[in-house]
């Protein structure tokens, strides 16, 4: 036994030295059964890009109803890919492939099933992007866009939904006097809150936030964070972030992803004070390995 290891070591040098280390690593920690009500369940979910690269490997993750779930992990770990899978963004580019299930509760509908229409999925699961991306239209039209897409034409209905979404996004007071001005005249932070309002207007069941504050200054970031926390009382939120302090501040559950796998999922306080998996610990404490 020892002899074999030694020859292996001598032959392949570094690789052999790294291999036993990998083997020592405990397997990913599967999420415990949640007692809180769920809004969605990700089950044995895998995702392949059109070039055959498997970006997500057999991920299991619960999404709690009206709670904030944060996904953290190093660049390229698949966290954004996972988020974009939840509203079928990958269907915009040909050749991408999903496997497994994303079950929307309580109906039990599989969002990535063959008979789920991506357009209908996106009507139920809204998305806010990394960089504020208001449409080149007025503030009012930006928020109304999601309603117009749904074929809502009644002026009164749209007016009401626009105001309510802007109020929920805590930006109403700043824009109520210039609703018909260009969205591009807003500051970056206001634009991002406008994008959140746009996502909220059609009343989605889940709102996905893909690093929503990475392009914002600290003051705008604080406003968005407060907003996200307030929103979690009424809507289920999944947020991807590079900022671990942010994840620890605003989320109720945190998932740590590494190389396409969900390594650990748990209560945010537990993940950030006493993570179970060494890889999680190394990542959040900023260590090598």
């Amino acid at each position: 036994m020892t002899d074999t290891t030694m020859t292996l070591d001598q032959k392949t040098g570094q690789q052999a030295a790294a291999a036993p280390k990998e083997a020592e690593m405990p397997p990913a920690i599967r999420p415990a059964t949640e007692r809180d009500p769920l809004r969605a369940r990700i089950e044995d979910f895998s995702f392949y890009y059109s070039n055959g690269f498997q970006a997500i490997k057999h991920v299991d993750m619960p999404i709690l109803d009206r709670k904030i779930t944060a996904i953290i992990g190093p660049s390229g770990c698949g966290k954004s890919t996972l988020l974009r899978s939840l509203n079928r963004m990958h269907d915009l580019y040909p050749g991408n492939r999903y496997e497994g299930k994303v079950i929307l509760e309580p109906e039990g509908e599989n969002l990535i099933g063959p008979d789920a229409d991506p357009v209908l999925v996106r009507l139920r699961v809204g998305m806010v992007f990394q960089k504020p991306n208001p449409f080149p239209k007025s503030i009012y039209e930006n928020v109304a866009a999601g309603l117009r897409v749904r074929g809502i034409k009644k002026r009164a209905v749209i007016d009401e939904a626009v105001e309510s979404a802007l109020r929920r996004a805590a930006i109403w007071d700043e824009v109520k006097d210039k609703l018909h001005g260009s969205a591009y005249d807003l500051s970056g932070g206001q634009q991002q809150r406008l994008c959140i309002a746009r996502g909220l207007a059609p009343n989605p069941e889940i709102l996905l936030l893909d690093e929503p504050t990475s392009a914002l200054d600290p003051i705008a970031t604080a406003k968005v964070e407060d907003l996200v926390q307030e929103l979690s009382e009424t809507v289920t939120i999944v947020i991807v972030t590079h900022n671990m302090q942010q994840a620890s501040r605003i989320s109720h559950r945190t998932a740590f992803m590494y190389l396409g796998e969900a390594i650990e999922f748990g209560e945010t306080a537990q993940i950030f004070t006493n993570p179970r998996h060494p890889r999680t610990e190394n990542y959040i404490t900023g260590r090598y390995g």
Binding site: M244, Q245, N274, P275, T280, E281, I284, T285, G286
Partner: peptide, 10 residues
Amino acid sequence: RFQPVARDLR
């Protein structure tokens, strides 16, 4: 300076 978490925080 480092806003420690997990083991470092403990």
